[in-house]
Amino acid sequence: MKGFSNFFIVFAFLFLANCATNNNSQRIVDKTPQAQDPWESFNRGTFAFNKVFDKYLLAPLAKGYRIILPGEIRKGVRNFFSNLKEPWTSINAALQGDFRNSGTSIMRFGLNTTVGLLGIFDVATSLGFEKQKEDFGQTLAVYGVEPGPYLVLPLLGPSTVRDALGKVTGFVADPVTIALNKDGKENWLWIGTAVNGIDFREQNLEKIDNLEATSVDFYATIRSLYLERRNRMIRNQSADEQDPFQEFDIE
């Protein structure tokens, strides 16, 4: 009986010691690949440049865009440009072996270009063809290309080496780009990119401004948001299919 009692005391001691440790050591086990940011000081410089560009040009243009054009027209413009990205999404989905999504994008493009009047109206979504976005950066990730260091691109914002390569490939290989280049209308590409940027900023005017105002380190916040969101896009799983904390546990 004494032996049992001693065993119990030792066990209790160990348990208490464990508890005492736990009390101060609840910690995060973060297995997500850490942000590789070896070029941080260079990136911070580009980030500062982008902020100036945003303050004096992009944000004022976005505000003007909001004032001049009513919400419905802005939505039509957004839909139009979004529709032009469907062929590239379809190609990338196919390259990733996701033929279902590839077909969905083709259907969306066909429906919205015809019934949706050149994409101004997104009729495909209401018919059950959900919008998705696949780019070449995601395709490279599917083929096992690592993201590489975090990279802030002038004017274009947060990226990684892999995603930047994906962007460049997108500029060259997107069927819409090829068609415009073929017709000698490459200027439309720059106009399209500019309008897209202004539209994105308009949609997120308060959100981005508020995010900056409530961030201790805005650069780190944006980097964190970009990498996490990108990671989720690459995993390509819907929110209810994935375990969001599988790599990020609180013990």
């Binding site: 380190d217 780190a220 916040t221 948001l225 969101r229 990020f248 609180i250």
Partner: peptide, 22 residues
């Protein structure tokens, strides 16, 4: 609630990164 993840972005992780430098 001990964390929430909006569109794949965790509140906890974002704030940890935000505060890290300071």
């Amino acid at each position: 609630v001990i964390d929430m993840q909006v569109e794949g972005v965790s509140l906890l992780r974002t704030k940890r990164n935000d505060f890290k430098m300071v």
